[in-house]
């Protein structure tokens, strides 16, 4: 008996095929907005890595004879109320922003995924308990939680990261649960039950890989709001502490001089806007590429 004749089609390639992932991700090249978002993020990531080389001045050294200089040749983004070069502070602040984003993503991604998949897979009482717990966490405002954390642990970047992480995993968990409910009814899961695949095997090797694309999309979109929350905490003085050049804290200190020296608050504002927008654009594009249900 021979194989179907249709196999000689365009898929007949002798080399091993690249994974579905790579194929799908390469489609980003055809999406100008998403590509722009990705490039902006890559640029900021490079800046974060190369901050000591790129920054023209030390971000914390004060120059009181040179305060509130307007943007010009010597200081491209001007200087703040203590004479520090704003561009250098923004460049060093990139590091803080990326550290916050990466840490939060590494905490809430796996946590939300595991809770959501277990909830959806087990169903019944486990599902009810986990989802009600998720609802409770979801109703916590992250700023208020951060305030209480700051009171208990002392204000700082770490506290901000913990507060943001603890309040932003529920959306990932709900997404993973919804995704699991669809996947667990698939026939390949039924077939795996028939040949005796264990629950752990089904959860980690069959169901979880199917949830990861949408979780990545949601994480990317969530990063925009994480940046805004982190900046908000910095603005309230609950995030990174002076003199560390956190963007939110920079806006906060520039607020007082808004009329005389607009650039102190506006420059970090532009940085926050750019990164946040880049994450949104990339997230939307990833959703279009990875999730066929959102096809246009």
């Amino acid at each position: 008996m021979t194989a179907d004749n249709t196999m000689a089609g365009p898929i007949a390639v002798s080399q091993p095929e690249p994974g579905i992932w790579r194929e799908r991700l390469l489609r980003i090249v055809d999406e100008p907005l998403g590509l722009a978002g990705l490039l902006v993020l890559c640029l900021f990531a490079t800046v974060a890595v190369l901050a000591p080389i790129l920054a023209p001045y030390d971000p914390t050294v004060q120059d009181l004879g040179n305060i509130m200089q307007a943007p010009g040749a010597a200081h491209w983004a001007g200087t703040d109320e203590l004479g520090r070069d704003i561009l250098s502070r923004l460049i060093w602040g990139t590091r803080i922003t990326f550290r916050t984003i990466l840490t939060v993503a590494l905490i809430i991604g796996p946590l939300g995924l595991v809770i959501g998949v277990i909830s959806g897979y087990c169903g019944g009482k486990v599902d009810t308990v986990l989802m009600r717990f998720t609802d409770i966490v979801l109703s916590f405002p992250s700023l208020v939680l951060a305030l209480s954390f700051a009171a208990a642990l002392g204000a700082g970047l770490g506290t901000a990261i913990i507060a943001i992480s603890l309040t932003s995993w529920p959306s990932i968990a709900r997404l993973a649960r919804a995704e699991t409910l669809t996947v667990r009814r698939a026939e390949y899961v039924a077939a795996a039950r028939l040949y005796g695949a264990s629950h752990l095997r089904l959860i980690f090797l069959y169901i979880m890989p199917m949830c990861i694309p949408s979780v990545i999309v949601r994480l990317t979109l969530a990063m925009a709001s994480v940046i805004l929350t982190a900046a908000g905490l910095g603005f309230l003085g609950l995030g990174a502490q002076p003199p560390s050049p956190e963007w939110g804290a920079m806006i906060s200190s520039g607020r007082k001089y808004m009329l005389d020296a607009w650039w102190i608050a506006v420059m970090p504002g532009i940085a926050i806007l750019t990164v946040s927008l880049a994450f949104n654009l990339l997230g939307d594009t990833l959703r279009d590429i990875l999730d066929p249900r959102h096809a246009r």
């Binding site: 698939a186 390949y188 795996a192 069959y206 199917m210």
Partner: peptide, 27 residues
């Protein structure tokens, strides 16, 4: 063992054929 109706739904989309065939034995 069972063969299902939908050949598009009964194989895990992220498992290569070799892996799909090893899974019953490993399990």
């Amino acid at each position: 063992q069972m063969v299902f109706q939908d050949p598009y739904g009964s194989l895990h989309p992220r498992h290569r054929i070799g892996r799909a065939l090893k899974e019953p034995l490993i399990s």
